[in-house]
Design a protein around this nucleic acid. Structure first.
Length: 791
DNA sequence: GTAGGGTTAG
């Protein structure tokens, strides 16, 4: 209270009722302070009901410190006053004070807590990180005879749901002899909070059908998110009909819930109609619409509504922003992302962890991984989701080492990984082919009980196939209690990766028998499997079936697969004809597949046609130019080959350097072409020399020489450099005992010469050599490769 | 009643 307002206030004698009325009508803490002065002047400072009213009002205005001070001045507070302050403290974000007031009440007064006391204190204990307070209160309430009180019961149900103790919540609910709307509503919303969507819907149905209890807008709006989450439009429709019948359908909460439901089911037309039905849409209903447009990829409408919201003078909140942000990355809107980032900084919304996490994701999806990292570093409160967003940002951008090192930082900072974290890390292991790290993660998954999570399981299967252990992957797959379309796709593509085309087709057939609805990726996976195994007829059949039986509009990627299948089989003209039948514009991979086939089957004419298209569509890609240059060299068109390479040089295009990973025990070794940095390089180069002699005797013919005609000296040296896979295999031979399988991982496709070299080395050393290249696995054994020279 | 992080092809 300041002096001016005190001086300005007309202090006059008032009766008690007038004092109470003044308190009731106060609309700010400053008014209350003035009235407080009058209360004192008029001699009511010891009137408990006046003081209680004042404390109650102070709590409503969040002036909890003032309220507490006043409370302490009351010589003999009664139970009602205690209850008011317990509830007030809890509502003002000080749940611990509520509990300590309760303790004080029990230990230092002769008062006995009643059902209100318990209800308010239990509610407060839902806001304390430690669950023990609520559990203790539950026990005391039962002892004091309030165990089946409705008020107390509802707070207890809410408390147990807050701490994810679904069974306990259910138990308390079941034991309540009498159930009212609030109790049912608490149950419905608690189940939703704990992702028990089906149960939530079931409880709602029971409430509506036979409980005899009245449904209110909260009942309906509590259950709607469950239907939305499960995308059960029919259930949602039923709820909508019911709420119309009960006259609840014009309530803004109900309408907002329905908007969200229809949006999540992809029906923005209905959402829009519902939104237009709201007489005075509030921020939350706007948010629901914006997020709906965003998830349905209507960036224009989403942004329009956002601008409208700002224009109406609404103070947008974090939900608005989080619902809007994903609009930016599918369309590459980097500038708009930066704009909204600036807006968040200016308005202070950036401090909300959900906002900074969403922005981190946006930047990493836009390949602005550095910006993502800066934002991550700057964000004050790093939640589990923020760490996960950054880690997955790295794996999605192929920066696996950074992902793994951030994962280590995360553990150092004592943030406990969850299934989401683990899924990203497994994906990183799969990318780099690190079986040792993958197995370590698997160990952690078992310890933490994450194996029941379908994302984790699928990522684990993927990790095993990509790290070369297709059998282990299949075992996990067969033992899986639950599989979705992605799990099946993963296993099918795993077979493809290893060249096991028939197994992939068999699994695909089995999938169809299990009535799993295939996706576009399912067909891509099985078609790639056909291409890696040379199954031409089967591939054509599946493509045909995809279009005619399953009604899929083939994507450019599907065409690329078919071109690959036909091309590898030598049916180059047919592949070209196939491209000409395409209904969509052929993308670079389509022409790339044709170009690759031209390399295998030495067709310079078509190669030139394909590369002309490619150089237009994807001028920065060096791979295609190198491929064309090699094709020309093989055809002895040296001058043309040189001019293709010249372009690469002139434009300063960067070729991805080849590298190979080999793990001995848990230690990873990385080799690059012509690597002389290795401590055991002498032994490696000596053995390389020795092997070279032996395999030449056995009939090996180096394949690089043809490409070396008419090449500048400097360049020749580059080409002559020994490829990293040869160095890695040789090192593996030195480091491991005879008979042990050698596994290596190459980041690019293995070249023709290295492929042939490895075949011979596997024969003379009697070793199984497993090579994972950028495309697939090669299992070399006794002079032959599992790919049947088909890659 | 609205909202952030995860798996599959190439």
């Amino acid at each position: 209270m300041n002096c001016r307002s005190l001086a300005g206030a007309v202090i006059q004698a008032l009766d008690r009722n007038s004092c109470l009325r003044l308190l009731e009508d106060s609309s700010a803490v400053s008014h209350l302070a003035q009235t407080h002065a009058q209360v004192v002047v008029c001699g009511y400072k010891n009137d408990i009901s006046t003081i209680t009213k004042l404390i109650h009002k102070l709590c409503d205005f969040k002036a909890v410190a003032y309220a507490r001070a006043l409370f302490l001045s009351v010589p003999k507070p009664d139970l009602f006053l205690f209850n008011v302050l317990i509830r007030g403290s809890s509502n003002c974000g000080s749940p611990l004070s509520s509990v300590s007031l309760f303790t004080y009440l029990r230990n230092n007064t002769y008062l006995r807590p009643d059902n209100f006391t318990y209800a308010f204190t239990v509610s407060a204990s839902s806001g304390i990180p430690d669950e023990k307070f609520g559990i203790l209160l539950h026990a005391q309430a039962v002892v004091d005879g309030y165990g089946s009180d409705l008020f107390v019961g509802s707070s207890l149900v809410d408390f147990y749901f807050t701490f994810s103790k679904v069974e306990m919540a259910q138990k308390v609910f079941d034991r309540m002899l009498e159930k009212d709307t609030v109790l049912w509503n608490t149950m419905i919303s608690g189940l939703v909070k704990n992702c028990c969507y089906e149960d939530s819907i079931a409880v709602f149905a029971k409430m509506a059908a036979g409980s005899g209890v009245r449904l209110d807008p909260t009942s309906v709006s509590s259950v709607l998110p469950a239907a939305a989450e499960l995308q059960l439009l029919n259930i949602g429709l039923g709820i909508q009909c019911l709420s119309v019948k009960l006259g609840l359908s014009s309530h803004v909460h109900v309408l907002t819930g329905l908007i969200s439901l229809y949006s999540k089911c992809g029906d923005m037309k209905t959402s829009k109609a519902l939104f237009e039905n709201i007489i005075r849409p509030d921020l939350i209903s706007y948010n629901a619409m914006i997020s709906g447009y965003t998830t349905n990829a209507d960036s224009e409408s989403s942004l329009r509504l956002f601008k409208e919201l700002l224009g109406l003078g609404f103070q947008v909140n974090s939900s608005t922003i989080v619902g809007l942000i994903p609009v930016f990355y599918p369309f590459g809107h980097l500038l708009l992302t930066c704009g909204i980032h600036g807006f968040c900084v200016k308005s202070g919304i950036i401090s909300n962890p959900a906002v900074s996490t969403a922005l981190t994701t946006a930047y990493s999806r836009l390949n602005e991984i550095e910006s993502a990292r800066l934002l991550f570093n700057e964000s004050k409160e790093k939640t589990l989701a923020s760490w996960n967003a950054m880690i997955s940002g790295y794996t999605k951008n192929g920066l696996t080492e950074k992902a793994i090192s951030l994962f280590q930082d995360m553990q150092v900072s004592k943030m406990d990984p969850n299934p989401v974290t683990v899924t990203s890390i497994l994906s990183a292991c799969a990318q780099i082919g690190s079986l040792s790290l993958g197995k370590w993660v698997y160990d952690m998954i078992r310890r933490k009980g994450f194996l029941s999570n379908l994302y984790v399981l699928t990522a684990l299967i993927d990790m095993y196939t990509k790290c070369g252990s297709i059998e282990d992957a299949r075992k996990l797959f067969d033992d899986a209690p639950e599989k979705n379309v992605v799990t099946w796709n993963t296993m099918i593509s795993g077979y493809g990766l290893h060249g096991h085309g028939q197994e992939a087709i068999d699994l695909f057939d089995e999938m169809m028998k299990s009535n799993i609805v295939p996706s576009a990726v399912t067909f891509l996976s099985v078609l790639y499997a056909c291409s890696h195994a040379g199954l031409v007829d089967e591939g054509q059949k599946i493509f045909h079936s995809m279009v005619h039986d399953f009604g899929f509009e083939p994507l450019s990627e599907h065409y690329a697969c078919m071109v690959d299948i036909l091309g590898r089989a030598g049916k180059l003209e047919k592949a070209l004809e196939f491209i000409q039948t395409m209904t969509v514009e052929p993308s670079p991979p389509v022409w790339g597949a044709l170009l690759g086939a031209c390399m295998i089957h030495k067709n310079t004419r078509l190669a030139q046609l394909a590369s002309e298209k490619l150089f237009n569509l994807d001028p920065e890609n060096v791979g295609y130019r190198v491929l064309l240059s090699n094709i020309l060299s093989v055809d002895k068109k040296y001058a043309q080959a040189a001019s293709v390479r010249q372009v690469v040089k002139q434009r300063n295009l960067v070729k991805t350097p080849g590298a190979t990973l080999l793990e001995i025990g848990d230690i990873p070794y990385v080799f690059t072409a012509g690597d002389h940095s290795h401590p055991q390089k002498e032994a490696i180069y000596a053995l390389l020399e020795k092997l070279s002699g032996k395999i030449l005797e056995a009939g090996y013919k180096p394949e690089t020489m043809t490409a070396l005609h008419d090449v500048e000296e400097e360049e020749k040296e580059l080409i002559m450099r020994i490829h990293s896979e040869k160095l890695a295999i040789t090192f593996g031979l030195i480091q491991t005992n005879p008979g042990i399988e050698i596994r290596i991982f190459k980041n690019l496709r293995v070249c023709l010469d290295c492929h042939s070299w490895t075949k011979f080395v596997s024969k003379i050393t009697e070793r199984v050599i497993v090579v994972r290249d950028a495309n697939r696995f090669h299992h070399f054994r006794d002079g032959a490769c599992s790919c049947g020279d088909y890659w």
